[in-house]
Design a protein around this nucleic acid. Sequence first.
DNA 1: AGAAGTCTCGC
DNA 2: CAAGCGAGACTTCTT
Length: 503
Amino acid sequence: MKSQGVTVRGPLFDTMVAHYLLEPDMRHNMDLLAETYLHYTPISITELIGKKGKKQLNMSELSPEEIYEYACEDADVTLQLKNYFAPLLEKNKVRKLFDEVENPLIPVLAAIEYEGISIDGNAMAESSKELAGYISDIEKQIYQMAGTTFNIGSPKQLGEILFDKLNLTGDKTKKTKTGQHATGEEVLSKLAGQHEIAQLILDHRQLTKLKSTYIDALPQLICARDGRVHTSFNQAVAATGRLSSTNPNLQNIPIRTEKGREIRKAFVPRDGSHLLLSADYSQIELRIMADFSGDATMKEAFQKGLDIHASTAAKVYHVGLDEVDSDMRRKAKTINFGIIYGISAFGLAERLRIPRREAVEIIDAYWQEFPAVKQYMDSAINSAREKEYAETILGRRRYLRDINSRNANIRGYAERNAINAPIQGTAADIIKIAMINIHNWIETEKLQTRMILQVHDELVFDAPKEELGIIQPKIAELMKTALPLSVPMEVGMGVGENWLAAH
DNA sequence: AGAAGTCTCGC
DNA sequence: CAAGCGAGACTTCTT
């Protein structure tokens, strides 16, 4: 049996901790999780998972004895690792992170996975037919314009059609690392003014993505036993401490486009007496940046409850808050995100499609107005150079062994990690604590509300209508107070007949 | 059959 | 060179 996930990637004990927390494969053993942590009578994994993708199909083909053996083996691996590493854990921050966050989170995740979420399969089937029609129409138009049929889903073939046959000219004729013509969204968007076919390809891409990844895939994962979809949350996969979600990934359900939003509408409460409640942290990463840097201007914006992007725009463009137009706000929003990721002037210019010179000016103005942010970023990099790791507020470490590399490219990547990992990871720490506290509160109050999803800064609940009055203020409070910072934490909330309406 | 590459969905 | 973290579908290359 494979023991992937057990691999110890680094020599230092707290890297090992991340792996002993949870053997990732174990997360798929719902029987074991339910039995161990929820004291439910385990139901057959074959029954629960039913027909799935290729990997799960193999699982279903196992006999109950084999499944049991598999589960035991996983549990045994986890236990062995735990026994081996536990004595190495001293009374330090990482120990606390394990004892007070990651370990108590396990039963919470198990409960969420076990609970599942209802998806309207009929709506999905309707959508599938509709999309198939649109896609076939677009295909015909593309073939006509190209003067030939080809596989639109093949970047290689598409590149040859666009750039060799139709002789379209990208401004730099971007190439991928294998020497092919790049045909990504960015390239095609720029080509849209030149030839109608580019927009059609983009539309085709969007529709086939929605159809194959969501509309056709999700209904297949509806569990025959309870009619719900059960994701798996990986607790020890993302380098920053975030969760990730697989089989299916419920952390990347579309919301951006109109057609995408239709998919969100198919995520519904368990029945007519329930509603979905969505609670999300507002700008949690920027608030963490404000706290870490102590920047007076940024902290003031949050303390006053201002629109942070508009506030940033007012500062950077030296205008009054009421003079900020939508374009200034949009650019400031991009800057704010860029700050968290360690952006360059080049990157900002690319994203905003503005001249380099303008991007430099904007960034200079930003440092002028938020000097403590600049100082924080420099000190984060210096600290990582010294220690070869970056850490969150709870001491969750990300090792950055490339931080002193002589290769500027590799070093730059590590430096951006040094800035981003503490921020993204602290956000993960905070929502994990909130999840534990909320789960425990629901249990002690013996409520019927169930937490059913986590999407990095959002929690989704399936709640009886009559419990909404009690749970809304309490959930908001528990999220805000999970780990108090020097700036207030805001939580947005919505209730609805589906996940889209709950936003 | 599996790995690698490309692309696109989310926060 | 050039913004962080993921998962999954699909095509194409390698074994």
